[in-house]
Amino acid sequence: MLAEWYMKLQETVTPEHVVPQVVLSILHAKELGLKLPIIYNTSSFDSLVSIELLDGLVDIYLADFKVWNASTSKRLLKADDYATVAMESIKAMHAQVGDLCFTSDGIAKKGVLLRHLVMPGHEEEGKHIVRWLAENVSKDLYVHVMEQYHPRAHVGKERRGKIGRAEDVAAGTVEPGGEAAGEAAKKQVRYEDINRAVKMTEVESVRKVAEESGLWRFPESAEHGAYSS
């Protein structure tokens, strides 16, 4: 159960809103003798001010790039500027710590590890993301193209109400208002388009484009067990 809570926190929490407190706590811990590397696990929806505050304190940025299209991020993440913010944040993180490097015994010690969780039906967005990473960050970036998506939270739950919700209207699955919309809403589940596991063909298509774009550093299955989501 504790491990499951870790995964829920990883998917829903980013430390952006407490960065000043985090910075002060790290500085104090270092004064007390902390020598362990600091890992910053983030959705990449961070302000540049926050990233600047962390400069020199974070050893490894464990960063996501979730979706590409503004319409998708508005619907699924409730932030239509997610990709714009993430691009600037990821570039700033990489400018601080560079590409991921390891100790002689294979333990990550400094750099950026970038994760992209391939979503069902959204592999084209993943292709845009990996192309952008190769062209604008680094072809030596360590990238984890992830296949672990499965429905959770509100996905797949039966919806209630007589009028189609905003996410379904945006997706074109329900017309706004009216009796027909109400009947359709009663029969549908929330976020029906992603209410399935991702197909390996979808994941492989994103990985193929990543390789064609020049990215080459990918974790193998034995390596990424500790930070999958």
Rank of each mutant, 00 (worst) to 15 (best):
R207G: 05
P151L: 02
M7E: 13
L54R: 07
E220R: 12
A83H: 04
E4D: 15
E125R: 03
G214S: 06
D99P: 13
S43A: 10
K157N: 06
V155I: 15
H128G: 03
V203D: 00
K199R: 15
G111S: 14
L34P: 05
A83L: 09
M1E: 10
L48Y: 03
M7A: 12
E135W: 00
V130Y: 05
P151G: 00
P120N: 00
Y40P: 11
E52P: 12
V155P: 07
T84L: 13
I163P: 04
V13W: 06
K208R: 12
A222V: 07
E212M: 09
S71T: 14
A184E: 14
S228K: 07
G178D: 15
L9I: 02
A166D: 03
K127I: 14
K186M: 05
Q10L: 03
P176I: 13
K91W: 03
Q96F: 03
F218D: 07
A108V: 07
V118S: 03
V203H: 04
P219F: 10
P219I: 13
T12K: 06
T42K: 06
A29C: 08
E31H: 06
A92L: 04
E147I: 01
A210K: 15
I90D: 10
R75N: 09
E147Y: 11
G33V: 15
M87G: 02
W216R: 13
F218A: 07
D193N: 11
R217F: 06
V169R: 12
V130F: 01
V143S: 08
N136H: 02
E11L: 10
S138G: 07
Y6D: 09
E211P: 07
L32W: 02
N195Q: 03
L2K: 13
L62C: 07
D99L: 02
G225Q: 13
E211C: 05
L24N: 15
H224G: 04
R207N: 09
G156D: 10
H122I: 01
K187I: 01
E52V: 02
E223T: 14
R196S: 01
V198H: 13
E11W: 05
A108N: 06
E88V: 06
D105T: 09
S50F: 09
E16R: 00
E220K: 14
G121M: 02
R207W: 15
G111R: 08
E202S: 02
E212R: 04
A171Y: 06
V112A: 08
G56V: 07
R190A: 15
L2M: 12
L100H: 08
A185S: 12
M7R: 14
S104R: 09
E4M: 04
V155A: 00
H154W: 13
F102R: 11
